[in-house]
Design a protein around this nucleic acid. Structure first.
Lengths: 213, 213
DNA sequence: AGTATTCGATACCGATCGGTAGCGCTGGAG
DNA sequence: CTCCAGCGCTACCGATCGGTATCGAATACT
């Protein structure tokens, strides 16, 4: 059915890629389909053959952003498996780098959702799901770390992350990663218990030590 | 020159009020001038007599939001003058209530700025100024509180606040104020020094005590 | 009273919006 | 070889975009 040239990009893929870049950089309402057509080098007819409406294209953009975000998240998690605290710090490092990149313009979920008022709009639904998933993962992670109030800390770290997302490179010169990581450490209560790689459940939040520097 | 009926609203004022509500609720690009005309009950000609372009109207909207935000901020500050920590907690309480209100749709500066890509656009300029002012105030406050690393903590609390702004009522049922305040306390390093109401400059961050509960 | 300004109303401008119709080409599957 | 789905191209649709022109009524300052 669909084979085409293996070395060339799929038509739908080219459309979605071009649309994603434009949507992210300029906002979805600022980008007309004609612009996407020009940028992707695809006929308008073909665009509408794969995405029935512009809203479908917007939804596809956000769905893909969502998928890729969690893929990278999981990658960082897997690279630091075993030590939950290390996992958290690695995630914050990844986010710190992400928001410091040139051309970073915030979280697409937040940005696009703000352009629509109808809560039934796919953009807003996807955003809600995305942020709920974020909290769930953080909450589970806080439990594994052994935080005393895992739900509260999860909410707080979620706030830090969303704040970093909207910072638009404001933290670039002070070190986004450093700010995020030290905040997380503080939120976990000074110096949290370092859990053993082999599932040692931390129960006492014993010896507090001054921060290394 | 301009007196008009004292009991009636100024024409420009009616336009700006209607535009502000629509802009905030639906996003600036989703709202056409015709819609503002209908909602304000003002002739299109009159609208353009006071605001030469739609961008001028958008800028006026954001400028006013900025002014009113700092007016309320200063109000909270004045109501809690003397004790810097109390001041901070009161500010976070105010923000917690603000983001929990029905119909809260995030920070207008963040939302509108995301709809434009040109950094020279007034919306993005005002946003940068607004957020810079936020950091400056927080940084000064952290110094008055006696935080050990005032700049870092200021950045971290700014992240919390921006995160709360974009939470869209997600913290409503867990208590936004509680989450924000406990985060701030933790970021200040357990229990920070409580400054005397009469200008006692805290220099040593002496006795650390375990959190009350 | 006279004059200048501001108002609302309507009609209009070119440009662009999201989306569709029709046509001619092409390349891979049967 | 035949067939046909997917492609690019162009022309087009009604609706709406931001913004302007014109005009008569109402208002305010001198």
């Amino acid at each position: 059915m669909k084979t085409a040239h293996v070395d060339e990009l799929d038509t739908a893929e080219r459309v979605l890629t071009a649309a994603s870049h434009l949507f992210y950089r300029h906002g979805v309402r600022a980008v007309g389909v004609e612009w996407i057509v020009t940028e992707s080098g695809v006929a308008k007819t073909s665009l509408y053959r794969h995405f029935h409406t512009k809203d479908d294209l917007i939804a596809a953009f956000l769905e893909r952003e969502d998928r890729e975000f969690w893929m990278q998240w999981d990658q960082v998690v897997n690279d630091n498996a075993g030590d939950p605290l290390r996992e958290l710090l690695a995630l914050l490092d990844w986010i710190g780098q992400r928001v410091s990149r040139d051309g970073y313009r915030g979280c697409p979920q937040i940005n696009v959702a703000a352009e629509f008022s109808d809560d039934e709009h796919p953009a807003r639904r996807i955003r809600v799901r995305h942020k709920a998933a974020m909290y769930e993962r953080l909450s589970a992670l806080m439990r594994r770390i052994g935080a005393r109030q895992p739900d509260d800390v999860a909410h707080q770290i979620a706030l830090l992350i969303d704040g970093a997302f909207t910072s638009d490179g404001r933290l670039q010169h002070v070190g986004a990663t450093r700010i995020l990581q030290s905040a997380a450490r503080a939120l976990l209560g000074g110096e949290p218990v370092r859990a053993r790689p082999s599932g040692a459940r931390p129960k006492s939040q014993g010896q507090r030590q001054r921060r290394p520097r």
